[in-house]
Amino acid sequence: MTTTEISTRAGAARATIRPRRRPLAHKKAIAFFVLPFGVLFALFYALPVGYAVWQSLLVVQRVGTFGPAHDVFGGLSQYSQVFANGPFWTSVERVLLFGVVQVPIMLGLALLFALLLDSPLLRGKKFFRLAFFVPYAVPGVVAAIMWGFLYSPALSPFKAVTGRVDLLSADLVLWAMANVVTWVYVGYNMLIIYSSLLAIPTEVYEAARLDGAGQVRIAWSVKIPLVMPAIVLTTVFSIIGTLQLLAEPQVFRSFSSAVTSTFTPNLTVYSTSSVPDFHLAAAFSVVLALATFVLSFAFLKFTQRKGVQ
C-alpha cells in the first residue's frame, strides 16, 4: 500500500501549487460531488451525535405531581444516574466477559483457517472458502432465530446435548449467543486475514522453505507477523461489535427467560427508551459510544506500542 500513499502524497504536493493559479477551479463540480453526501452525513451522522449529547443533558420537570412535563437543562444529572445504575454496569461487565472469551476464539479460528487455506496442505480450497463464508450471508436476527430453535430441546437435532444441558439457562445463554456470533463471523474474518496473506509475495517465505522450515514454523514466524495489521483491524471491529450486541439477545428473549431487558448495554438503551425515558437512554448511548471509542482506540495504541504494526 506504500504505492498508494506515495501517489497520494505526490498528488498532494502537486496540488499545493495549483490553487494559487486557479483558486476557484471547478467550484460547481466540487459542490455537486460533495454536497449530497455532506448534507446527508450532517443530518444523519453529525446531528444525531450532537442531539444525543444535548438530550442527555436534559431532565424532565413537572409542575406539581400531575402537571404537564417539560424538559429543562439538568447538567450532568443523567450521567450520575448512569453511573449509579447497577443493571447497566452488570450488562457492561457481561459484554466485556463475552468479548474477552469470544473474540480470541473467533479470531483464532479465523486465523487458523486462513493459514490452512494459504498452505499447500489442503485440497478443495474454493469449496472451504465458500462453505465457511456462507453463514455471513445469514442476517444476525435470522441466525439467532435458527440457533434458538437448534438449542430448544423439542426441536433440536442435537438432542444428545440439549437433552442433558439446558443451553438456554441463565448460566449458559451468554455462551450460546457467543456461538451464534462466532458461527456468523468466523468466515468473514477468515477472508479478511486470507486476502492479506495473499498479498504477501511468495519470495518472502520461499527462503525459509528452502532452509527446511515446516509449514507451522513458516506460519508462526513469517506469515502471522506479516498479517498482524489485518488481525488488529478485525480485533477492533470485533470489540466494537461485541459492545453493540443487540440482535442476538433481543431474539433470545423469546427462547429464554434468562435474557433480561438489560442483558446487554444496547438492550438497556432500547428498554429505557421504550419506558420512555429518552434523556437517560441518550446518556446510556453516549457513555456506550464513548466506551467503544476508548476501548478500540486503546487497543490500537497498545498494539502500536508493542510494535506489531
Binding site: F44, L47, V49, Q55, F293, S296
Partner: peptide
Amino acid sequence: GVLVPATALALPLFLI
C-alpha cells in the same frame, strides 16, 4: 464517522 457504531445513532435518529 467510521468509528461511530451505527447502533449508537439509532436512538438519537429516532428522537430527531
